[in-house]
């Protein structure tokens, strides 16, 4: 990689980051929380890109990791008093990681379509459990809880405003992006990409492909759980709908719309999808998925690279 390209990349990165930092100061309240929401869904989509774009495994089960992140955070926020931010992260991540380990162990035995269907069915298992275990999860009604304060023990504790919440989410998402980028460029990430390109040859060279895949699914699930925790903090409720497989499907849509294998593409895809939803629900109310679905089908057929696909090379340098 030439130094000039590297400078170009980091320049672009800083400009986008600066815009996102400044955004809540100029945007009205609605669009401010809308932007925060885009970042959270973007993180979820980005976590799934590690599988779809870099390892070549389409996961239709990300709602399970996301949902368990939400419910884990919910448990922590309901049990601790006053609600503790860091306990929410701990609980949410542990719950998501446990589920991810379980799903990874079984689903990585299968490839391609079978992997997609298996992850889908696993997410439905957790959906059914959460939906029917009313005493613990509130069943269909879900759980509501209070938003924790932004606190560092022994230093300070301030309640979240919509600006500080946005910056907090932005910090977590940016850090996650940098970590995921580092992962995909590491030797480990290279092995994942070689699994995507040619699994048999990777195995023949001597890499334990299954173990790499399991770790990839677990990492991906962990970041999806992180997105779940952020979502719980922002929206202050947990509902079984977030574990339903339609959420996983939307995550895949974000990826395809934005461009897989780019990490930032999924965030752009999430933004594009949420903007389309916002725009169309003014005309079509709750049937916005009809036009959005048609656009998605057209993009699958005519634009499989997604919105940022043309930048794939430069983003991965």
């Amino acid at each position: 990689m030439t130094a000039r390209r590297r400078i170009g990349y980091w320049m672009g990165f800083s400009v986008v980051l600066a815009l996102l930092i400044a955004a809540p100061l100029v945007l009205p309240a609605f669009w401010r929380s809308f932007l925060t929401e885009i970042l959270i869904w973007g993180l979820l989509a980005m976590s799934s890109d590690l599988l779809i774009g870099y390892t070549g495994m389409v996961s239709f089960g990300h709602s399970a990791f996301f949902g368990l992140g939400i419910y884990g955070a919910a448990a922590a926020l309901l049990w601790t008093s006053p609600p503790n931010l860091w306990m929410a992260f701990l609980f949410g991540l542990v719950a998501a990681a446990a589920v991810a380990a379980f799903v990874a162990y079984f689903s990585t035995r299968l490839r391609d379509i079978y992997f997609a269907i298996t992850t889908l069915i696993f997410s439905q298992i957790f959906y059914v459990i959460i939906f029917t275990w009313t005493e613990l999860t509130g069943g269909e009604n879900g759980l509501t809880f209070r938003r924790p304060a932004l606190a560092v023990p022994g230093l300070f504790s301030v309640p979240f405003t919509s600006e500080t919440l946005h910056w907090f989410v932005l910090a977590v998402v940016t850090l996650s992006y940098l970590v995921l980028r580092r992962i995909t460029r590491s030797p480990f990430g290279m092995v994942l990409q070689s699994i995507r390109e040619n699994e048999a040859r990777t195995r023949a060279i001597g890499y334990p492909v299954e173990r790499y895949k399991i770790v990839a699914v677990m990492l991906s699930g962990l970041f999806a759980g992180l997105a779940g925790v952020l979502y719980a903090i922002q929206n202050r409720f947990a509902a079984p709908d977030f574990v339903f497989f339609l959420v996983s499907g939307e995550v895949v849509i974000f990826n395809v719309m934005g461009g897989i294998g780019t990490l930032v593409g999924p965030i752009v895809g999430a933004a594009f999808f949420l903007l389309l939803r916002e725009g169309f629900s003014r005309f079509f109310t709750e049937y916005y998925l009809i036009p959005v679905g048609l656009i998605f089908i057209a993009m699958v057929i005519f634009m499989p690279q997604g919105l940022l696909g043309f930048m794939r090379r430069s983003l991965n340098r």
Binding site: G249, L289, I290, I297
Partner: peptide, 15 residues
């Protein structure tokens, strides 16, 4: 890739 058909039919099912 057969996986693209999953995406297309998923879109169709939503519509």
């Amino acid at each position: 890739d057969p996986l693209t058909t999953i995406l297309a039919t998923f879109g169709i099912s939503l519509v």
